[in-house]
Amino acid sequence: DTCAICRVQVMDACLRCQAENKQEDCVVVWGECNHSFHNCCMSLWVKQNNRCPLCQ
């Protein structure tokens, strides 16, 4: 699966965690819609949006 926000494989660290060298801290979360995201990506997304980027 791919993170619906950053488009990186969810089993890999997101771009932000890769840049900050925090790959082991990058975890996967699932929305109520069952789409998967990196927690970092979702945390930033929900500050500006309240819907899944794929379900909009």
Rank of each mutant, 00 (worst) to 15 (best):
C14I: 00
V28E: 11
V29P: 12
M11G: 13
Q56L: 10
V28Q: 14
D1W: 00
V46Y: 06
V27Y: 15
H38E: 01
R16V: 09
H38C: 03
V10G: 06
R51Q: 07
N39G: 13
V8Y: 06
K47S: 09
C14A: 02
L15V: 10
N50L: 08
I5F: 06
G31T: 10
C17S: 07
C17F: 00
V28G: 07
D25L: 03
Q9C: 09
D12P: 05
L15M: 12
Q18G: 11
Q56A: 04
K47G: 08
N49C: 06
T2R: 11
Q56Y: 08
V27T: 15
C33M: 02
F37I: 04
C40G: 02
W30A: 15
Q48A: 13
L54S: 12
S43M: 06
C41E: 06
N50E: 08
D25P: 06
A4N: 12
R51N: 08
L15W: 07
V29H: 11
D12F: 01
V27L: 10
E32V: 06
Q18R: 10
N39D: 13
L15Y: 11
C3V: 01
L54T: 15
K22W: 04
Q48F: 06
M42R: 10
E24N: 09
A4K: 12
K22C: 11
M42L: 11
W45Y: 02
D1N: 07
R16F: 02
C40D: 06
V8H: 11
N39T: 09
T2Q: 12
V46N: 11
H38D: 01
C26L: 04
V28W: 07
L54F: 12
C33S: 01
L15F: 08
Q23A: 13
L54D: 15
C33Q: 01
T2P: 08
C41F: 02
Q9E: 12
L15S: 10
Q9Y: 03
S36H: 06
F37L: 12
D12I: 05
H35T: 00
L15N: 14
V29A: 11
E32M: 03
N50I: 07
C52I: 01
E32W: 05
H38I: 05
A19C: 03
C3K: 01
A4S: 13
Q9F: 05
W45M: 13
I5N: 06
S36F: 09
H35S: 02
T2D: 01
N39W: 04
R16D: 14
C3R: 00
L44F: 06
W30Y: 14
W45F: 12
K22V: 06
A19H: 05
C41W: 00
E32D: 11
C52T: 03
V46G: 07
K47E: 12
T2L: 10
C55G: 02
C6N: 02
Q56H: 11
M42Q: 08
Q48H: 09
C26R: 10
P53C: 04
E20W: 01
C33F: 02
H35A: 03
R7W: 05
G31I: 00
V8F: 08
C17L: 00
V10Q: 08
Q18T: 12
S43R: 05
C3P: 03
A19N: 14
G31K: 14
F37M: 12
C26P: 15
V29Q: 15
H35D: 05
W30V: 14
V46H: 08
D12W: 06
C40H: 15
K22E: 06
W30F: 07
V46L: 12
